[in-house]
Design a protein around this nucleic acid. Structure first.
Lengths: 159, 159
DNA sequence: CTCAGTGCAAAGGATTTGCATGCCG
DNA sequence: CGGCATGCAAATCCTTTGCACTGAG
């Protein structure tokens, strides 16, 4: 049952956004890192996007940013648990906000153009998956940190 | 509900293996490619493995193979639908036989050592996922070719 | 003042490709 | 014989890193 995610309130300065900033600043501060302008920009970009962004996506949207800084800061944000790296099928890694800063969701990955869209699964599906995970953990000793349920196919635009 | 996959019969020359060879040869032949010794070696390696293999895995197991030939032939086998590329979280792509040559399954990906293990989900989980997919297709116009349900976590060895 | 952060340029590293040779059909 | 397949080496291209400079506290 897909439904829109994020974009709850894209107004700058909204309660949701400033809370996000506070959380990001806290997590960075915990390891002696600052919440700089560039990092704020990255967080805001990811928060406003309706899908994970690749580095080219980010650079084209903010051409003044240095490529290496984007890579470096996304890595830092990933380490402190603000950003999550999403691996798809094309050559570019993509990034989105960590799940505890947005909401649990899944991806539709277009094998033709590489674009990634978000969707949320029905509670019933999530319950099934959760059960499967605990079964697997019990039987194999594998400790699951999180799961990914992605659909790979062809998006409407490429069809 | 994890259970062993493949390895149904690892005896060379068994019915299952020769059938696999016939299928591979057919799919290659359909686009004017041959089922060469090297390709047969790759198919056999993947068939015997209990998990997707990276190129380094393959090269260390068959040190005489040229790296570029392995890359090139895995790409060819992927194009004709004999092999599937599995994207994980580390730097190496991994490869396994296409699902219609083995059976539908999922992956346990260790975020520490990068190793990938196979597991199969219960029919109930698969039914839920199948339903979710049709819901998404109906609502978004996305045509799903296949799905991936992977668990990312820490394997017993790394725990 | 100090030290993390930034930008530029160069290095890394998995994967791809050009080219000459080998081999199956 | 002709064209696909192979191996070696060089090229690609995303990503990471070295280094000197800038800026916030």
């Amino acid at each position: 049952m897909p439904k829109p995610r994020r974009g709850v309130d894209t107004t700058n300065g909204s309660a949701a956004v400033s809370e996000l900033h506070v959380t990001a600043a806290e997590r960075l501060g915990a390891v002696g890192q600052r919440f700089t302008t560039l990092r704020r920009t990255l967080v805001d970009l990811l928060a406003e996007a309706r899908q994970p962004l690749s580095i080219p996506d980010i650079l084209s949207s903010e051409p003044t940013l240095a490529q290496s800084s984007v890579y470096r800061n996304l890595a830092v944000l990933e380490e402190v648990g603000v950003v999550r790296r999403v691996v798809t099928t094309d050559d570019f890694a993509r990034h989105e906000l960590a799940e505890d800063l947005t909401e649990h969701h899944h991806h539709l990955i277009c094998s033709a153009c590489g674009v990634v869209e978000d969707f949320t699964a029905s509670p019933h599906v999530e319950r099934s998956v959760a059960r499967a995970i605990s079964e697997v953990s019990d039987l194999t000793g594998f400790t699951s940190e999180h799961h990914r349920l992605d659909l790979i196919g062809v998006c409407r635009a490429c069809a």
